[in-house]
């Protein structure tokens, strides 16, 4: 594992933990899109179905469990926590996220490495992850002031994507590792969405 990949994983982990701690410490999820969080939970569940079938390393397995549980904890807080759920901006968070799930699923059925359950789940999770931030971006643009922590959350997520692309470039040259084109393309789309956000974020 190279440094880019590790930094990518760490910024990804950090973004999720920052968000969870923010919600837990302030007992408020104001400015956080529950739809984006639900999409991420679906992404992790679909991608890490291989947890028990393909063992890569202890590091990978632990991280998979951490991502699934932390994203589930965020969704649980926003739906069930007696104080937190009252602070959810339901009227603002109107993005039709089911459309994204359906589109990602159809894409995964058409474009996959192999027409198997595992590969379709994997491709589905990659496509969905690329667009899962959209409800959050829409919510951020509606709110007048971007909350510091919510801004940081998106910042760390963006850093994660950037590091992963550097990781693929690095692996391409050092290991001759051909990262699958599905991840390349989706990764670029995803990073582009963040770049667009930061452009406006820093203008403000």
């Amino acid at each position: 594992m190279n440094a880019f990949r590790f930094l990518g994983d760490m910024t990804h982990l950090f973004s999720v933990l920052v968000l969870l701690l923010k919600i837990y410490a302030t007992k408020s999820c104001s400015g956080v899109s529950r739809k984006t969080q639900e999409l991420y939970m679906v992404v992790f569940l679909a991608r890490y179905m291989d947890l028990f079938t393909d063992y890569i390393s202890l590091y990978n397995s632990v991280m998979k469990v951490v991502f699934i549980t932390s994203s589930a904890a965020i969704v649980w807080c926003m739906r069930r926590h007696p104080q937190v759920r009252r602070t959810y901006d339901k009227e603002q968070d109107t993005f039709r996220h089911v459309v994204l799930v359906a589109a990602a699923f159809v894409l995964a059925l058409i474009f996959n490495e192999r027409f198997t359950f595992r590969e379709i789940c994997w491709a589905f999770s990659i496509y969905l992850e690329a667009v899962a931030i959209l409800p959050q971006l829409v919510l951020l643009q509606r709110g007048r002031n971007v909350d510091n922590l919510t801004g940081q959350y998106v910042f760390f997520l963006g850093a994660y994507r950037a590091f992963y692309i550097l990781n693929w470039i690095y692996r391409y040259f050092t290991e001759g590792h051909h990262s699958r084109w599905i991840s390349w393309l989706s990764g670029l789309v995803q990073t582009g969405l963040y770049a667009d956000f930061f452009y406006y974020y820093f203008l403000r």
Partner: peptide, 10 residues
């Protein structure tokens, strides 16, 4: 046929 590679990234 070759066995599909496992996904080694997160």
């Amino acid at each position: 046929t070759d066995k599909p590679k496992a996904h080694d990234e997160l």
